[in-house]
Amino acid sequence: MTQTTTPPGTPVIELRNVSKTFGEVRSLSGVDFAVYPGEIVGLLGDNGAGKSTLVKTVMGFHAPDPGGEIWFNGERIDDWSVARARDLGIETIYQERALCEKQPIWRNMFMGREPRTKWGLLDVARMRSESARLMSDHMGFTSAAVHPDNVVATMSGGEKQGVAITRALYFDANLVILDEPTVGLSLTETKKTLDFVSGIKTAGKSAIFIDHNIFHVYPVVDRLYVLDRGKVAGIYQKSEISMDDLIERLYHVARTGSLN
Rank of each mutant, 00 (worst) to 15 (best):
M1Y: 14
T2R: 14
Q3H: 15
G9Y: 12
T10D: 07
E14Y: 13
L15P: 06
N17S: 15
N17Y: 11
V18S: 08
T21F: 06
G23T: 07
S27M: 05
L28D: 02
F33Q: 02
F33P: 03
V35D: 06
V35L: 15
V41N: 11
L43Q: 01
N47L: 05
G48N: 14
A49D: 09
S52A: 05
L54I: 05
V55C: 01
T57I: 10
T57L: 15
T57Q: 04
T57D: 12
V58A: 04
M59R: 03
G60K: 07
D65L: 07
D65I: 10
G68E: 05
G74L: 08
E75P: 04
R76F: 05
D78F: 12
D79Y: 12
L88S: 06
I90R: 06
I90E: 08
Y94L: 01
Y94I: 00
Q95E: 03
E96A: 11
R97Q: 11
L99H: 00
K102Y: 02
K102M: 13
P104L: 04
I105S: 01
N108R: 01
N108L: 01
R113I: 04
V124E: 04
R128W: 04
S129F: 08
S129M: 09
S131Y: 00
A132E: 12
R133P: 03
L134H: 01
D137P: 03
G140K: 06
T142P: 02
T142E: 15
S143Q: 09
P148I: 03
N150A: 07
T154I: 14
S156M: 09
S156V: 02
E159V: 03
G162S: 11
A164Q: 11
I165H: 00
T166N: 03
A168R: 03
A168N: 06
A168F: 01
L169G: 05
Y170M: 13
N174Q: 15
L175S: 08
I177K: 10
D179Q: 03
E180K: 03
T182Q: 07
L187N: 11
T188F: 13
E189T: 11
E189R: 01
T190I: 09
K192Q: 11
L194Y: 06
D195E: 12
V197Q: 08
V197H: 02
S198N: 10
G199C: 12
K201C: 10
K201R: 15
T202C: 13
I210W: 09
I210S: 11
H212L: 11
H212D: 13
V217N: 00
Y218D: 02
D222W: 03
R223I: 15
L224T: 13
L224K: 08
Y225K: 07
R229P: 07
R229Q: 13
K238P: 04
E240L: 11
E248P: 01
L250K: 06
G257N: 14
S258C: 13
S258V: 15
